[in-house]
């Protein structure tokens, strides 16, 4: 475990230099929120109106959280990097190192996101206060729970993207898969809560990754209750184990393939 902490820490240190990029990213993030803020203002003729159980303020906070989780992740860069590692054969350097590649990937990506997580969260909260005027109803404990659950949501996303990147062992170009995944999250899990979709879709979406990577944390943030928190947390733990196993499985198969083909 210690070595993974070290991997994460070195990644944080090396990212210190790219702070400008994080601040640059804020502009794009703000633009998306301006668009969605305008869209919801247009949608809600009266700010106290409830649509599918959400007030306008809740909708804005909801979308701030989902957009935060998506922006912090920076998935397209991540999946490209893993795919490049596989394609260029860099990944073979990791085979005889005393750590598991999936663990390495996870640790270095968490390190990678760490600073972004802090800066983006602060920025997102400031932006939310600016648009809405007040925080949702959260006390210290529930706020901490939301942070933990958001963090786990990112861990699951990293594992998903790692597994997509690792598919490059078997197919020429895994980027279409990443596209599918990102569209799935962006269209179905970012702009609207699950309640906005037709009933038959809601049932599917609840069991999809959207529940643990975007809907869950955002829903908790705007409408906290302990039952939901426990449900989401349990689902996340299951997802983490399952995804980790999936990644290890793909990696194992992939490495064997390299050995057979001689790289």
């Amino acid at each position: 475990m210690k070595k993974y902490l070290f991997i994460a820490k070195s990644q944080i240190m090396s990212n210190m230099q790219y702070i400008t990029n994080i601040f640059g990213g804020f502009i794009g993030f703000t633009l998306i929120l301006i668009i969605l803020f305008n869209l919801y203002q247009y949608l809600y003729s009266d700010p106290n109106e409830l649509i599918n159980g959400y007030s306008m303020h809740q909708m804005i906070w909801y979308v701030i959280i989902t957009e935060l989780l998506w922006s912090i992740l920076g998935g397209s860069k991540m999946s490209k990097k893993i795919a490049n590692d596989v394609k260029s054969g860099n990944i073979t350097y990791n085979i005889n190192k005393p750590y598991s590649y999936v663990g390495y990937c996870l640790a270095s990506n968490i390190g990678d996101l760490f600073l972004k997580f802090i800066f983006y969260t602060i920025f997102g909260m400031v932006l939310g206060i600016f648009f809405v005027g007040h925080f949702p109803n959260l006390n210290i404990i529930s706020a901490l729970i939301v942070i933990v659950i958001s963090f786990l949501a990112l861990v699951i996303s990293i594992l998903f993207i790692t597994s997509i990147g690792l598919v490059s062992f078997f197919i020429e170009d895994a980027s279409p898969l990443y596209w599918l995944y990102s569209k799935f999250i962006l269209v179905l899990g970012t702009i609207f809560p699950i309640e906005f979709f037709p009933v038959f879709m809601q049932k599917i979406l609840i069991f999809s990754p959207i529940y643990v990577v975007s809907y869950g944390p955002a829903r908790l943030f705007v409408n906290f209750n302990y039952v939901d928190a426990i449900n989401i947390f349990c689902a996340q733990v299951i997802y983490i184990f399952a995804c980790y196993a999936l990644c290890s499985f793909i990696y194992g198969k992939g490495v064997k393939r390299i050995n057979v083909n001689g790289g």
């Binding site: 794009g28 998306i32 305008n38």
Partner: peptide
């Protein structure tokens, strides 16, 4: 990158919702 993506973001929403 930000300037270009700003155009692309906004281009997919009707101008009627902005004021």
């Amino acid at each position: 990158d930000t300037g270009v993506s700003a155009v692309i973001f906004f281009a997919t929403y009707p101008d009627g919702i902005f004021h």
